[in-house]
Design a protein around this nucleic acid. Structure first.
Ligand SMILES: [Mn+2]
Ligand SMILES: [Mn+2]
Ligand SMILES: [Zn+2]
Ligand SMILES: [Zn+2]
Lengths: 140, 140
DNA sequence: TGCTATTTGCAATAGACTTGCAATAATGTC
DNA sequence: GACATTATTGCAAGTCTATTGCAAATAGCA
């Protein structure tokens, strides 16, 4: 269970499990799209959870530091999104330019490309981002 | 020549060729890395070109609308970068996490992947971003 | 239950980018 | 080249996302 995993991470870094951290984690756990800070804030308000937007920002940053959440910056959205890492493997996304829906792409074509790039550029490749935009079935 | 191409685009949209637009274009033309607005501003100041940062923003937006410049948002940089499209073909980038150097990757592995994604998701794919980070030869 | 360090909410601040508006400058015409 | 028209510029102010300072609240533990 996730809450057990996070309790461990929090404990080990001298942090505490709080009402708001539980709420943010639970929301990310039941949501299947990456959420922005303001979306997390709005959703929790609707769920009658009292939380400040500042606390949302601080919470996702802590979860990121613990390696439980990853931050993604989709093309020209102007705000970061966050999704649970727990139990999901490396993947990418496509976002509908009309309605904003974001769908997971459970593939990554970059394992072999990395070697080619390292040869050509003499860089050591550390990470990559790959995001698509387009039109979802409903918005075509 | 680039200035001829842009004069045409400007004319056709009821716009004018100005001292500042010339300066921004010339800078982008002689620079081989994508530049942020504040970098364009700083470089032009050093080159004794009087220009306001607001004008830089407006200028890159106009050039983007004319299809002469493309905007890219590298991972967690917090600001957009702009590079000339003219004469360069579709490509991607790798940025050094230490010194910030950005190198063109003259490849794109996504022509065939697009079809696969469209089949799997029923989206129509329109565009994609792909950026790498790592460590350049000097910073390893 | 009480102690103490961490976390929270509120207000203020930072940084990228945009907008309103009067002054300035580019283009077409005489 | 001078003039009239209209786009563009610079400055100030505003927007939006995200961060920071600090006193009050609360989690973890004895
Ligand atoms: Mn995802
Ligand atoms: Mn490039
Ligand atoms: Zn990948
Ligand atoms: Zn590509």
């Amino acid at each position: 269970m996730l809450e057990t995993a996070i309790r461990k991470g929090l404990r080990e870094t001298g942090r505490r499990m709080t009402r708001t951290r539980k709420a943010v984690l639970a929301l990310l756990e039941r949501t299947h799209e990456p959420l922005s800070a303001s979306e997390i804030f709005a959703q929790l308000q609707q769920a009658q959870v009292a939380i400040d937007l500042v606390t949302v920002y601080r919470t996702v940053n802590v979860l990121k530091e613990l390696g439980l959440v990853l931050q993604l910056d989709l093309f020209q959205e102007g705000q970061s999104r966050y999704e649970l890492k727990e139990g999901r493997k490396h993947h990418h996304h496509i976002r509908c330019q009309i309605c904003g829906r974001i769908v997971d792409l459970l593939l990554c074509p970059l394992k072999k490309l990395t070697k080619l790039i390292e040869e050509r550029t003499q860089f050591v490749v550390d990470d990559h981002t790959l995001e698509f935009t387009g039109f979802c079935p409903k918005c075509q």
